[in-house]
Amino acid sequence: MSTTPTADLSHAGVSIWLDDLSRDRIASGNLSELISTRDVVGVTTNPTIFQGAISAGIGYEEAIAAQASKGATVDETIFSLTTTDVRDACDIFRPIYDASNGVDGRVSIEVSPVVAHDTEETIAQAKALYEAVDRPNVLIKIPATKAGIPAIAETIAAGISVNVTLIFSLERYADVIDAYLEGLERAHSAGIDLTGIHSVASFFVSRVDTEVDNRLKSIGTDEATALLSKAGIANARLAYELFEQKFAEKRAQDLVGFGANVQRPLWASTGVKDPALPDTLYVTELVAAGTVNTMPEKTLQATFDHGVISGDTITGNYADAHSVIDGLAAVGVVIDDVTQLLEDEGVSKFIASWHDLQGTVDAALKDAAAR
């Protein structure tokens, strides 16, 4: 029986989610086609994705004109456009959501990055987005900043499923897991059915290699050169090790006994930045049961075309992953410094995309109003 690499990946226990969404992708049938031919079972979005989609303009003209006619503000228009896209995508994925008991068939939408360091505003936006989309298969994305950690707990406690994004360090990932468990404990105490609460923890991969490799090249020794393009995968593998450890502990297992779901690790930023690397690197080297890989379409198509899925490539490689991190420290690359820089940059880049999106929508509203 013939199969495909994306089918092999799914059979290995990895859920394939597309890291992109637009109104054109929905309306043209492209999203449905990727579900049927590329084993896609979910979608993630972020401010940069929406900025690209809406600035392209395809499919948004009537909606923006309608917003202009009723005097909507820029932020009100963005809220309307993005929640509509996510709602429509949720409807497309609903059969997968139902068939998987809520594990997959998920569509993520992120709180505004400008509130990434404001706990109360993050909570308020998370609840507003959840109510506006009004679909059980939506995931609200909350960044794993220090201010985001208590917001994650509060949102989960309210019974809202969460995609925790912009995780780079193991230390912060441990905080994310603890926040998820705290939220579940509070939800259980409030009488909320835990079986309906799901979460993924989005651990970023390729950006780690980009930053670390720049530092290794500056060092330039043989020891440093030998570590090139190894940090991202090692860091992610150690995240999976931490996931296994934390969810085997009594606190988590007690909640599972009450019907709770584990918070699945999700590999994000899996498009290869260095053209010298294999274009499926962050897919084939991060295979383990119970994970999600959210891919840009280019990576998805590369995986379908020539990805080689050889089973679990994570759990047997913990010792090697620890060796890579130790090797980095030995040549002067402190992974904690790298991950904090990447978190700060990640928030800043999303804020810049958000401001670009505001500018695009403002111009479109003014143009529509002048007609």
Rank of each mutant, 00 (worst) to 15 (best):
Met1Ala: 13
Met1Glu: 10
Ser2Ala: 14
Pro5Ile: 01
Thr6Arg: 03
His11Cys: 08
Ala12Arg: 10
Trp17Gly: 02
Asp19Lys: 10
Leu21Asn: 01
Arg23Ile: 06
Ser28Glu: 11
Ser32Asp: 14
Ser32Lys: 12
Ile35His: 03
Asp39Asn: 14
Val41Met: 06
Val43Tyr: 06
Thr48Ser: 15
Gln51Arg: 14
Ala63Trp: 01
Ser69Trp: 07
Ala72Arg: 07
Ala72Met: 11
Ile78Lys: 01
Ser80Arg: 09
Leu81Asn: 06
Thr83Val: 09
Thr84Ser: 12
Val86Ser: 03
Val86Glu: 02
Asp88His: 07
Ala89Val: 02
Cys90Val: 00
Phe93Thr: 00
Arg94Lys: 14
Arg94Thr: 14
Pro95Phe: 05
Tyr97Ala: 11
Asp98Asn: 11
Asp98Leu: 04
Pro113Asn: 01
Val114His: 05
Val115Ala: 06
Glu121Trp: 00
Glu121Met: 13
Leu129Pro: 06
Tyr130Ala: 11
Glu131Pro: 02
Ala132Trp: 01
Asp134Ala: 14
Arg135Pro: 01
Ile140Met: 04
Ala144Val: 04
Lys146Phe: 08
Gly148Ser: 02
Ala151Glu: 00
Ala153Thr: 00
Glu154Trp: 01
Thr155Phe: 00
Ile156Gly: 00
Ala158Met: 04
Gly159Asn: 07
Gly159Ala: 10
Gly159Pro: 10
Val164Lys: 00
Thr165Gln: 05
Ser169Cys: 06
Glu171Phe: 06
Arg172Ala: 12
Asp175Leu: 08
Val176Gly: 02
Val176Gln: 00
Ala179Asn: 04
Leu181Met: 09
Glu182His: 07
Gly191Ser: 06
Ile192His: 08
Asp193Gln: 13
Leu194Pro: 05
Thr195Asp: 13
His198Gly: 09
His198Ala: 08
Ser199Gly: 14
Val200Phe: 01
Ser202Trp: 03
Asn214Gly: 15
Asn214Asp: 15
Asn214Ile: 11
Ile219Met: 07
Gly220Met: 03
Asp222Arg: 11
Thr225Val: 12
Ala231Glu: 00
Asn235Pro: 08
Ala236Phe: 04
Ala236His: 00
Glu244Asn: 14
Arg251Thr: 13
Asp254Asn: 13
Val256His: 03
Gly257Thr: 13
Asn261Asp: 15
Val262His: 08
Leu266Trp: 01
Ala268Trp: 02
Leu277Gly: 08
Asp279Asn: 15
Thr280Val: 12
Tyr282Asp: 11
Glu285Asn: 04
Leu286Gln: 04
Ala289His: 09
Gly290Pro: 08
Gly290Val: 09
Asn293Arg: 08
Pro296Thr: 10
Lys298Val: 15
Thr299Phe: 03
Phe304Asn: 12
Phe304His: 14
Ile309His: 02
Gly311Ala: 13
Asp312Val: 09
Thr315Trp: 02
Tyr318Cys: 04
Tyr318Lys: 02
Ala319Arg: 10
Ala321Trp: 00
Ala329Gly: 14
Ala329Asn: 14
Val331Trp: 15
Gly332His: 15
Gly332Cys: 11
Val333Leu: 03
Val334Ser: 06
Asp336Ala: 11
Asp337Lys: 08
Asp337Leu: 09
Val338Cys: 07
Asp344Ser: 13
Asp344Gly: 02
Glu345Gln: 15
Ser348Ala: 15
Trp354Cys: 01
His355Val: 15
Thr360Gln: 01
Val361Phe: 05
Ala368Ser: 12
Ala369Met: 05
